[in-house]
């Protein structure tokens, strides 16, 4: 059985990696054309433009893979198929971070501009405040989600997430009234999530390393995550240290989410739907999900982002990528839902 599972897993992994690389290259061949002359440009462009596309497709792949991973971890951790990084308030945390930065931080920019180090740090504007906000929200949810004895409890955790999310939403509305005139588009655009060609290479590298660390960690948890799908007492009897497993899964999910927020802001739906799609196609075994879901999510986000990137001419400007992830992901999700009788 081991040999059979391993060979199946190896085959899926190899096929998945190959497909991901193929889609990566295909995505590089699409882009917007010259406005007014050509709607979409197909084929490989000159170096200067190729570099911009490369940055963006890389960022999409990393952000997608990280979301796909975080989704599996959180759904497994919370035993809840509706969980994703954003149900846990991480997205609203990052938005609050950005808003606080816009309201209070930018006023301080002038004092920072004397220091070149600070200038470089904040050259990417919202990334660092977003990350700080996400980490603070995650930490709060984690503290609130613990029950007596320090063990993370799925139900308490998800409720804490919903509450932190709501409070974050209220703070966003509150801060919105304090934001200077003109800065509000930045926030709105941020709230939809956006992958930029302007992402710095340092950030992409940082996100990539965070994702790889989270991924490597998650791959060691596959079997244990399967057993954690049982009730606490059952999982305990089967040899799982639930408290440390949940702590690891939560920390890895936060790391992966941070990686994705760093390069793409809060993009919804990918982290929710990709684990489901993989469960529908390959079954609920986490050892497989930890490989298939990040790859599928990377492919999905690369394709969705390439679509919005290339079709601005048809939509009077570029669409937010969240529109496509929801519009394509939603019906596919419903199809899977229909095909299988149950998801639990």
């Amino acid at each position: 059985m081991k040999a059979m599972i391993l060979s199946r897993l190896t085959a899926i992994t190899l096929a998945g990696v190959f497909l991901t690389l193929l889609i990566f290259i295909v995505c590089l061949a699409f882009g917007p054309g010259m406005p007014g002359q050509q709607a979409i440009s197909v084929g490989f462009p000159r170096m200067a433009i190729l570099q911009l596309r490369l940055t963006r497709v890389e960022a999409a792949a990393i952000a997608g893979a990280a979301l796909g991973l975080a989704g599996v971890l959180l759904q497994g951790l919370l035993r809840n198929p509706l969980a994703d990084p954003f149900v846990l308030g991480i997205s609203s945390g990052s938005t609050v971070g950005v808003m606080i930065w816009i309201v209070f931080g930018q006023a301080m920019l002038q004092s920072f501009t004397s220091s070149p180090w600070m200038e470089n740090l904040f050259a990417n504007g919202q990334t660092i405040p977003a990350l700080v906000g996400a980490v603070v929200a995650t930490w709060l949810v984690f503290l609130l989600g613990r029950r007596r004895g320090g063990m993370l409890d799925p139900m308490t955790l998800i409720l804490s997430g919903v509450i932190i999310s709501t409070i974050g939403g209220a703070l966003v509305m509150l801060l919105n009234n304090l934001v200077p005139y003109g800065a509000r588009t930045d926030i709105l655009n941020y709230m939809f999530g956006y992958i930029s060609e302007g992402t710095s290479h340092t950030l992409i590298l940082a996100a990539f390393i965070s994702f790889v660390l989270a991924w490597a960690g998650a791959l060691t948890l596959g079997g244990a995550m399967n057993i954690a799908s049982f009730s606490d007492a059952e999982a305990h009897s089967l040899g799982i240290q639930l408290s440390s497993l949940r702590l690891s899964a939560f920390a890895l999910a936060a790391l992966a989410t941070a990686a994705s927020i760093t390069v793409a802001g809060p993009i919804g739906f990918v982290g929710l739907i990709c684990p489901h799609a993989c469960r529908g196609i390959f079954g609920p075994d986490h050892r497989q999900l930890f490989i298939t879901s990040p790859l599928l999510a990377a492919i999905f986000l690369m394709l969705a982002d390439t679509f919005v990137r290339s079709t601005g001419a048809y939509f009077n400007g570029e669409l937010p990528v969240g529109v496509i992830t929801a519009l394509c992901g939603g019906p596919f999700f419903l199809y899977l839902l229909k095909r299988r009788r149950t998801w639990m």
Partner: peptide, 9 residues
């Protein structure tokens, strides 16, 4: 909304 690629073009 445009991409940097369009800006370059």
């Amino acid at each position: 909304t445009i991409t940097r690629e369009t800006l370059v073009r």
